[in-house]
Amino acid sequence: MVDYLNAALRRVPAWVLYILAPMPVLVIFYLGLTGALGIDPAKRIEHELGLWSLWLLIAGLAVTPLRRWVGLNLLKFRRAIGVITFFYLLAHLLTWLVLDVQFQNVWADIVKRWYITVGMAAFVLMLPLALTSNNWSLRWLGPGTWRKLHTLVYPIAILGALHFLLLVKGFQWEPILYAAVIAVLLLSRVRPERLRSFRLLRQA
């Protein structure tokens, strides 16, 4: 089954994702403008784009565990997923700026409001990743440095989960679920031998 999937995916080029990527954004805005997103479309668009950013972040983080534990090889799509994640995050941020807060007290909000601070931090950390997502940057930095730089996606994912946790009212399960999925994906990267050396260090 997995072999069949891998064989099929081998024939799908990564650029297909770039063709598909703008469609959800267009659909979300179309639904918002035609009233299909309910009474408060600006807020819904903002939230939908935020959720899409989290889903894409999770999809990007799932590539390695899926290969290691399931044998499914999605590696060639990972960079495209990352670039698309950045554009969804940008669309989410622009919706907040233009439709929601309308550039009022934006700086004060970023400094004062924890969930906005955290969300903005995630976006800022994503900038170097987006800028170096081309082959030229990969050659220029060298694969080692490039890979190290792109481990920034781990703090970005933690900040994304935290952003959602901080913004809801009352006790709600949805953000906790997202945080749990992200936590599992990050923990799946911890190598047992490193844990052992950590334990030895503590004992020493």
Binding site: K43, Q102, N105, R113, Y115, L166, L167
Partner: peptide, 20 residues
């Protein structure tokens, strides 16, 4: 509110591009 400003509001139904 600790997590958002209360200085302005969005009047529901005033349109997606309406100013606060």
């Amino acid at each position: 509110h600790p997590r958002w400003s209360q200085a302005t509001e969005r009047l529901i139904g005033s349109g997606i591009f309406a100013t606060r």
